[in-house]
């Protein structure tokens, strides 16, 4: 089966910082690729390049067999790419419902049924009770739910999720995992996540990156046990909590 989205030799530097160093991966429909790595590794930057917000300096991005490396952001969305932002970016003066309605409305060329899509997505993401609240006055956790809701309402073929499980309770993480599993059969999912047990429950493969380079790839169990990954995370833990 040919992949829905594939990346070849993706490279990008910001001054002295390398956020992507010759990265390559491919994800097929019904598949979930996890991405892990320490803060500042370049994970979000990879999403920015996939979505078209940041141009790569080298490499190619192919969606459904079409080279989209030079396509605009909105064109990629119309071709089936949907993303969430790690730091929520809602339409602040619009309600949660209107945020999702806009996504359902402008992401496809055919009309009809947008309101129904928006309502059902809000119910699925646990935002029904907040539907008519302006997004700018929602608490952070609800704004993160709204990121997921907006991305789902795009009905994408490729779903890019950037740290959506942080801050949730165990029960909420379980609900989130169930939701993403339910979406998965029709989608190619790429999921950046620090809550590794949630990621491991859904991802078929995980790529670990550091300084923009791939340091490990494999099944969740393989990557979590990989010496290079352990070293990076041990280092992080020791750096952050030397007295812990």
């Amino acid at each position: 089966m040919s992949p829905v989205i594939s990346v070849e030799g993706l490279t990008r530097r910001f001054g002295a910082i390398t956020v992507a160093d010759n990265l390559s991966f491919a994800v097929g429909s019904g598949e979930c690729l996890g991405i892990i790595g320490p803060n500042g590794a370049g994970k979000t930057s990879v999403f920015n390049m996939l979505a078209g917000a940041v141009r790569p300096q080298a490499g190619r991005i192919v969606l459904d067999g079409r080279d989209i490396t030079d396509a605009s952001q909105h064109a990629r969305t119309l071709m089936g790419l949907g993303r969430t932002y790690q730091v929520p970016q809602p339409f602040g003066l619009l309600t949660a419902y209107e945020n999702v309605l806009a996504a359902a409305t402008f992401s496809r060329r055919s009309r009809g049924g947008e309101a129904e899509v928006a309502r059902s997505v809000l119910v699925r993401t646990g935002l029904a009770a907040r539907a008519d609240v302006p997004a700018g006055s929602l608490p952070l956790l609800d704004r993160k739910r709204l990121e997921l809701a907006r991305a789902i309402a795009l009905k994408p073929r490729v779903l890019l999720l950037d740290e959506i499980a942080g801050g949730l309770t165990e029960a909420e993480v379980a609900q989130l995992v169930a939701l993403i599993r339910a979406l998965k059969p029709d989608l190619a999912i790429i999921w950046i996540e620090h809550v590794t047990h949630a990621l491991s429950a859904v991802a078929d493969r995980i790529v670990a990156i550091n300084f923009g380079s791939r340091i490990a790839e494999g099944t969740p169990a393989e990557v979590m046990a990989h010496p290079a990954v352990l070293e990076v995370y041990m280092g992080t833990v020791l750096d952050v909590a030397p007295h812990g």
């Binding site: 078209g52 952001q73 909105h74 949907g82 970016q89 339409f91 602040g92 619009l94 806009a102 496809r108």
Partner: peptide
Amino acid sequence: AAVRDNEGTASAIG
């Protein structure tokens, strides 16, 4: 309204 509130997200929804 979407463009007014957030241009980046507006692009991202098409």
